[in-house]
Computed example of a mutant assay.
Amino acid sequence: MVAVLGLLVVAALVVMIEVPSLLKNGQRKEIWIFSFLLVLGVGISIAHSLHVKVPNPLDWIIQLYRPASEMLDNALK
């Protein structure tokens, strides 16, 4: 539980450092992207710290390309 609190504190510090300069420069789209990526990263980090199995995106890519790889492998044998 301490890890989750630490992650939230660090995320809050990052927001306090980054968002004022983005607001000052009128970068609204960048704030939305920054917020999305920060929430995604903090969410995955919290899940990892709570020992939740987080799927690896590379596994999805391997499953997507496996049929083509096997077909090409069979064609070259």
Rank of each mutant, 00 (worst) to 15 (best):
L40H: 06
Q27R: 08
P57R: 08
N74D: 09
I62L: 12
S45D: 10
Y65Q: 07
N56A: 09
S69G: 15
L8W: 04
V14P: 00
W60G: 01
I61H: 06
G26C: 09
F34Y: 15
L76F: 08
I46P: 01
P55V: 10
K29M: 05
R66Y: 09
I33K: 07
K53C: 02
L13C: 13
L72F: 11
L5I: 12
I62F: 06
A47F: 13
D73T: 10
I31R: 00
L7M: 12
V2G: 07
V9S: 07
P57I: 09
E18S: 05
K24N: 09
I46W: 02
V4C: 07
L76A: 12
I31V: 15
D73G: 01
M1C: 06
G26H: 05
N74Y: 08
A11S: 14
V10T: 10
D59I: 06
L38H: 01
V9K: 04
P67A: 09
V39S: 10
E30T: 11
H51S: 14
V52H: 10
L22Q: 05
N25T: 11
L58P: 00
I33N: 02
L40D: 06
L37K: 14
W60S: 09
F34V: 02
S49G: 04
G43A: 10
L37I: 14
N25P: 00
V15S: 09
I61Q: 11
A68E: 06
A12Q: 03
R66A: 12
K77V: 05
G6M: 06
V10A: 08
Q63L: 13
I61F: 15
I44N: 03
H48T: 15
A68S: 13
I46K: 02
V52W: 11
N74M: 05
V10H: 05
I46Y: 03
N56L: 14
R66T: 12
S35F: 01
V42Q: 02
V2N: 07
I31N: 00
I31K: 00
A75Y: 09
H51N: 15
P57V: 10
L13I: 14
G41S: 14
A68Y: 10
I31H: 01
N25C: 03
I46C: 02
L72P: 00
H51V: 11
L7G: 01
D73I: 08
A47G: 13
S49H: 01
P55N: 10
G41V: 07
L22P: 00
V14K: 01
W32I: 15
V9E: 05
V2D: 12
I17D: 08
S21A: 12
D73Q: 11
H51P: 00
N56S: 14
L72Q: 04
S21C: 01
S21H: 06
F36D: 03
L58I: 15
G41F: 12
L23G: 02
A12G: 11
P67M: 09
L5F: 14
P57S: 13
I44K: 07
K24G: 01
S49E: 10
V15Y: 04
S45I: 01
M71K: 13
L13K: 05
V10P: 03
S49F: 01
N56C: 08
N25Y: 14
F34I: 02
N25M: 07
A11C: 07
A11K: 01
N56W: 12
V19I: 15
H48D: 13
Y65W: 13
R28V: 13
L38K: 03
G6Q: 12
L7R: 02
N74G: 04
L8M: 13
P57H: 10
